[in-house]
Design a protein around this nucleic acid. Structure first.
Lengths: 235, 235
DNA sequence: AGCTTACGGTGTACGCTGTATGGAGTGCGC
DNA sequence: GCGCACTCCATACAGCGTACACCGTAAGCT
């Protein structure tokens, strides 16, 4: 798998020339996944999109799981990365978070791929290298630097998942159906806090600018959480 | 779905008595999922476990997706919840986090279920009610209280996913295979930070007590992050 | 009592998935 | 010019979730 990610396979010496390329496949698959998600991205659908028979794909890629890893690494390689010049650590970490949020908005399926093992491709490596640098000068040990980055990225992924799960319109429609049923079945006095907070949160969620509020809230917590670790070091 | 979660369906008036029950199905399915994960939990396998034909399950449950929601709600209903008596907010929030970690350790598949919509069953409601109370006296608005809880739970889920993905032994074996290949293909001087930090983090990860360190690190960040929001209020 | 009807259980079958296998055609290397 | 390595693909298989039709059962109605 790793040689495939790094495009290290030597070109074939014999036989007819290849009609496709791993990159062409990755590009088409990305287009399909962007359009309709990961589930409809089947080997048959992808082959159809490329005008070849399904089994042809297997001459380029060992299987679907590996294809998904290629997709992720490619998405991550080509994502926007803003520079860190002249920024303080909070701004740098915010930039990393925002870049990743943009990635998940452009390719919502990225958060849904879960590779059995870390995807050690050029995209992932470049991303890791870049993002680790956000913690330069923070006085973190190598292990803590990695943990801090994981902490930030896990937050972004969780936010992206939440955001992907719901849009204001579909939420509205769903609550219109589920709300009455729930009210009929559950006694609010058994769950006083949940009923009150859940209602408030639910209403907020249906407002258009809620995702941005939730994001700002979470990111502030992440930064404050790291500050306690970092700022004693940099004064 | 909601009436099914709340077991609100009226018993049948005619016909032969039922040989199974939703609870029996949920119990067997949980046993199967605990033993081997979510993927081998097929309708056929579950039916076999229960000694009925596969289609029989559909008289109790609309489909597999709904079954998984039932599983989650049941797991969440029966999870251990430690009390909050006499604890400060940090200890209460830690307790919530630890309880959820225990849940994910007992039922690693819980983090892998992703329902299209929130699972509004009795388990989820009881959990929400209980966990919201951890933020009593913190001076949070209802919306922020919900956001704070989400923040904590998202962290726990991300940790659980990471922990489920890897165990020290299989990691060791995998790195033994992937390491040399990666070294052959990637130029470490192109990724100086990544190579150094990645190596340190990878070595730490393979040590037996790493999961606990990662957990402590993340939980400390979560609490510190919330502290900046909470403690001005409670002095 | 007997007919009707709702209901539980299930055999069969459909459409879908990823992919193993083997064969036909192609072009380089000997 | 022979053989082999290679691309491409048709067919096929095992597995999935589940729609549908059917049979037997037992309760309600007349």
């Amino acid at each position: 798998m790793i040689p495939l990610l790094w495009r290290t396979a030597h070109p074939p010496r014999r036989g007819p020339s290849r009609g496709l390329s791993v990159d062409a496949i990755v590009q088409a698959a990305t287009r399909l996944a962007d359009a309709s998600g990961l589930e409809p991205l089947t080997m048959r659908a992808l082959a159809g999109e490329l005008g070849v028979a399904p089994m042809t794909l297997y001459t380029y890629v060992p299987g679907r799981a590996e294809l998904l890893e290629l997709l992720v690494d490619h998405a991550v390689l080509t994502m926007a990365r803003r520079g860190f010049d002249g920024l303080g650590w909070r701004e740098r970490v915010s930039a990393v978070a925002e870049d990743n949020r943009a990635l998940h908005r452009a390719h919502p399926w990225v958060a849904a791929v879960d590779p059995a093992r870390p995807v050690l491709g050029p995209g992932t490596m470049a991303k890791y290298e870049h993002e680790l640098a956000a913690f330069d000068g923070c006085g973190l040990s190598d292990v803590d630097r990695d943990a801090a980055l994981t902490f930030v990225l896990d937050f972004v992924t969780a936010s992206a998942r939440a955001e992907a799960r719901s849009s204001p319109e579909t939420d509205e429609a769903w609550w219109a159906g589920a709300g009455p049923v729930l009210a009929a079945v559950m006694d609010p006095s058994s769950y006083p806090l949940a009923a009150r907070v859940g209602t408030a949160a639910g209403e907020a969620q249906r407002s258009a600018r809620h995702p941005d509020h939730a994001w700002a809230f979470g990111l502030a917590r992440v930064l404050d959480g790291l500050a306690a670790l970092v700022e004693p070091q940099i004064v």
